[in-house]
Simulated scan of single mutants.
Amino acid sequence: MILKLKRAPGIYLVGFMGCGKSTVGARLADEIGWRFLDLDHRIEEEQQKSIVSIFEEQGEQAFRQIESEAIQHLIKETYRGRATVAALGGGAFAWPGNRERLEDSGVTIWIDCPFERICSRIANEHHRPLAKDPIRFRELYETRREAYAKADYKIEFDSNDPTEAVQSILALRLLG
């Protein structure tokens, strides 16, 4: 196991919305015997409202603050030894301060998925407030790639079979 994971057993999956972080993360956690946490779901449970509602009622800035606090809480759990594979929201890693905190407390893995596949995956979803404007959505994808590229590892995932992404992550030999 790499030293970072001995100190704080956290594997943080980052990438654009619709890239498969939650699906891949749940399968990866099951494979290695760790708990899985979807950060957006945790935020919705704690706030007792949807991400869309938070965006609409409080704005993106307020949501990002809530998200940063949830990341801090997650990091504390990993330092206490709670081994976790976490799927982060698409903007979490790009928000100032979050990346540095995450990198100091576990391993970050960018799931890089082509834009066209992401679009096909989320075409019928209505719970993604930043995907409503197709031009802005494409710009956001391109802009965030720079932040995602700072992750510890990158796997390319151009498939609808999450097993392929899990196998790519396991091939990194993070756990020994």
Rank of each mutant, 00 (worst) to 15 (best):
L3Q: 12
L3A: 14
K4Q: 11
R7Q: 08
R7S: 07
R7C: 10
A8C: 11
A8W: 05
V14Q: 00
G15L: 08
M17T: 14
G18V: 11
C19G: 03
T23N: 14
T23Y: 10
T23K: 12
V24Y: 06
V24A: 06
A26I: 01
R27I: 11
L28K: 00
A29T: 15
I32M: 12
W34L: 02
R35C: 00
F36D: 00
F36P: 00
F36H: 05
D38I: 01
D40P: 04
H41N: 05
S50G: 08
S50I: 02
I51T: 11
A62S: 15
A62P: 11
R64E: 04
R64S: 03
R64A: 00
Q65P: 12
Q65A: 15
I66H: 03
Q72C: 11
Q72K: 12
L74F: 05
L74H: 04
K76D: 11
K76Q: 14
E77K: 01
E77M: 02
R82Q: 08
R82E: 04
A86C: 04
G89S: 02
G89W: 00
F93E: 05
W95C: 06
P96R: 03
G97D: 07
N98C: 01
R99D: 02
E100L: 03
S105W: 03
T108K: 08
I111Q: 03
I111C: 08
F115L: 15
I118W: 01
C119G: 05
C119P: 04
C119V: 04
S120Q: 15
A123V: 14
H126Q: 09
H127Q: 12
A131H: 02
K132M: 09
I135P: 06
R136D: 06
E139C: 09
E139I: 11
E139S: 12
E139W: 15
L140D: 08
Y141P: 04
E146G: 13
D152W: 12
F157E: 03
D158V: 08
D158Q: 13
D161N: 10
E164V: 08
Q167F: 07
L172Q: 00
L174D: 03
